[in-house]
């Protein structure tokens, strides 16, 4: 079989599973879970450095940005101005151009503000960023993002951190069908079977954070997600059987005694 590459903006990744690095109990646990997940891309946030506590460990001590792709994210930004500021700082930190844009619209649902998101995408693309964009599962808005130059479309399965799984499979399928850039389901995945469903629908990848970090045993769960994404991708490539409304026997009738 031809090797199945996962390509985002001309960069090839081994794993179709992208993992977040938030909410873990410690950096040791983060590093072990990332390793078990097999992911070669992780999302990270940009925050103020703790000046007073110099001995406090930092993420880069545990996850080497030279060995794993850091995907700076604008989590926590509620307007275009803050999102742009965050990603420009991320780029200054080490030349990161591949970024994840996430502009939130509401503190309770953490639903994306698509007007600010589209506005920010246009500016970032103009500045040379490769922008992977977190968005609603609306096919019209997803198309608009692609037209604005987004390098990956990242519709939510359900609200961030909710673990509710894919609420609208039809919309995700419509987005996959119409997109020429990778579609990666982001947010709301609760358990590995949800990730498998996303991959079976034809998503190019999935992004998981809470479902791993908030599980009882994150390192085991990370491996479960690794396997679920591989399974879903293989099933998609293999092409599922047709659904039948009536039964069809698996054994031949000929020779029945």
């Amino acid at each position: 079989m031809k090797r199945d590459y996962f390509k985002i903006s001309n960069k090839v990744f081994k794993s179709r599973l992208i993992v977040g690095t938030g909410k873990y109990r410690s950096f040791v646990e983060t590093a072990k879970a990332v390793k078990a997940s097999g992911a070669d891309m992780v999302t990270v946030a940009v925050r103020r450095i703790n000046i007073l506590d110099k001995k406090k460990p930092i993420l880069t001590d545990y996850l080497n940005p030279k060995k794993i792709t850091y995907l700076p994210n604008t989590a926590g930004c509620f307007n275009s101005k803050d999102a742009l500021r965050t990603l420009r700082l991320a780029r200054e930190m080490g030349g990161w151009k591949l970024v994840k844009l996430e502009v939130l619209g509401d503190k309770k649902t953490l639903y994306p503000n698509m007007i600010e998101t589209i506005k920010s995408t246009k500016v970032l693309v103009k500045e040379g960023f490769k922008v992977m964009v977190y968005c609603t599962d609306d096919p019209i808005l997803a198309k608009e993002l692609e037209n604005c130059g987004a390098c990956a479309i990242m519709p939510l399965a359900s609200p961030i951190g909710s673990g509710l799984g894919i609420l609208n499979k039809t919309n995700i399928s419509l987005i996959i069908k119409q997109s020429k850039v990778p579609v990666i389901v982001d947010a709301g995945i609760g358990t590995p079977s949800d990730a498998t469903i996303a991959m079976e629908l034809g998503c190019e990848g999935v992004l998981i954070n809470s479902a791993i970090a908030n599980s009882k045993k994150p390192i085991i769960m990370a491996e479960a997600f690794k396997n679920s994404v591989i399974s879903g991708r293989q099933a998609f490539l293999a092409g599922r059987m047709k659904k039948n409304l009536i039964a069809k026997a698996s054994s031949p009738k000929k020779g029945i005694i």
């Binding site: 977040g20 690095t21 938030g22 909410k23 873990y24 950096f27 983060t30 999302t43 990270v44 946030a45 940009v46 925050r47 103020r48 450095i49 000046i51 930092i58 993420l59 880069t60 940005p65 850091y70 700076p72 994210n73 989590a75 700082l89 991320a90 930190m93 961030i160 951190g161 947010a187 992004l207 954070n209 809470s210």
Partner: peptide, 10 residues
């Protein structure tokens, strides 16, 4: 002055 770095995030 603002000094920032990367931390864990989703």
């Amino acid at each position: 002055l603002e000094i920032v770095h990367f931390i864990g995030g989703g």
